[in-house]
């Protein structure tokens, strides 16, 4: 499609959203399809925003997870950690994705008593700092 439409995909979505909002929506009389037309415009606008930022956000997420892995590995190296946590950390190092972070968090809670409160808090705080950055990025296009 990009070869034939002289607009970037996000701009094309924005353009269609404007048409829905300014021309199609107002021309529809029945309440339900009218709402659907306006809602479709909202969805396309949000999608456009998400698409525009997708590459930057993906790169930032990868950087964050890489740094998180290094931080946690250092902390783990200074003092032995429970085997399931070490395994979750290895998985994260191998797969820098959200599912691996989720598994790591689950394992942190599962091994909490073994870790002790101080270490648990120290580890989860580092994870949370990175997740804070991630949700802040998501809020940019969700708002």
């Amino acid at each position: 499609m990009a070869d034939y439409v002289q607009l970037a995909p996000d701009e094309l979505l924005e353009r269609i959203a404007r048409t829905l909002k300014k021309e199609i929506g107002p021309a529809v009389e029945a309440a339900y399809p009218k709402t659907q037309a306006f809602m479709a415009a909202v969805v396309l606008q949000k999608l456009a925003g998400q698409l525009r930022l997708a590459d930057d956000h993906a790169a930032a997420s990868q950087r964050d997870l890489q740094e998180l892995t290094e931080e946690l590995s250092q902390l783990a190296a200074s003092n032995a950690i429970p085997a399931p946590l070490a395994e979750a950390l290895r998985t994260l190092r191998h797969d820098l994705d959200a599912a691996s972070v989720s598994r790591l968090i689950e394992t942190l809670y599962a091994t909490r008593s073994e870790l002790g409160e101080e270490r648990f808090n120290s580890l989860i705080r580092r994870v949370r700092t990175r997740l804070r950055a991630r949700v802040d990025r998501e809020m940019v296009y969700a708002a």
């Binding site: 989720s102 968090i105 809670y109 909490r112």
Partner: peptide, 16 residues
């Protein structure tokens, strides 16, 4: 849908 890691953290906190 794959749950967001923050949701996993929240669930862990709620259970604890």
């Amino acid at each position: 849908q794959e749950p967001h890691p923050i949701l996993i953290d929240l669930i862990g906190w709620l259970k604890a």
